[in-house]
């Protein structure tokens, strides 16, 4: 079985540190009104951005599980 350094540590680091960048970006574009939640089109984009983050996170988690247990 590969070590923690090879499996979940990179995953935690990727979505922990990367997540901080992502969160920072979401806060800045919201505060700067780059994304204007009064517009229907922008509300759609907000959801797409959140979806994208979890989409990649779940994909990586599944790939690790498949590699380890399948």
């Amino acid at each position: 079985m590969p070590s923690f350094f090879n499996t979940w540590l990179p995953f935690i680091y990727l979505y922990g540190v990367g997540g901080l960048f992502f969160l920072g970006g979401m806060i800045i574009i919201r505060k700067a009104k780059g994304i204007d939640m009064r517009l229907k089109r922008h509300r759609f984009w907000w959801k797409v951005l959140i979806f994208g983050f979890f989409y990649f996170m779940i994909m990586h988690a599944l790939l690790i599980i498949v590699a380890l247990y399948w």
């Binding site: 970006g25 780059g34 984009w45 951005l49 983050f53 990649f56 990586h60």
Partner: peptide, 21 residues
């Protein structure tokens, strides 16, 4: 191994900055 795919799946973190900045 499969980790060669890493670079293609780590671009989302800066997408908010790009799309709306």
């Amino acid at each position: 191994g499969f980790s060669s795919s890493m670079a293609y799946m780590n671009d989302w973190f800066f997408v908010p900055f790009f799309l709306f900045g």
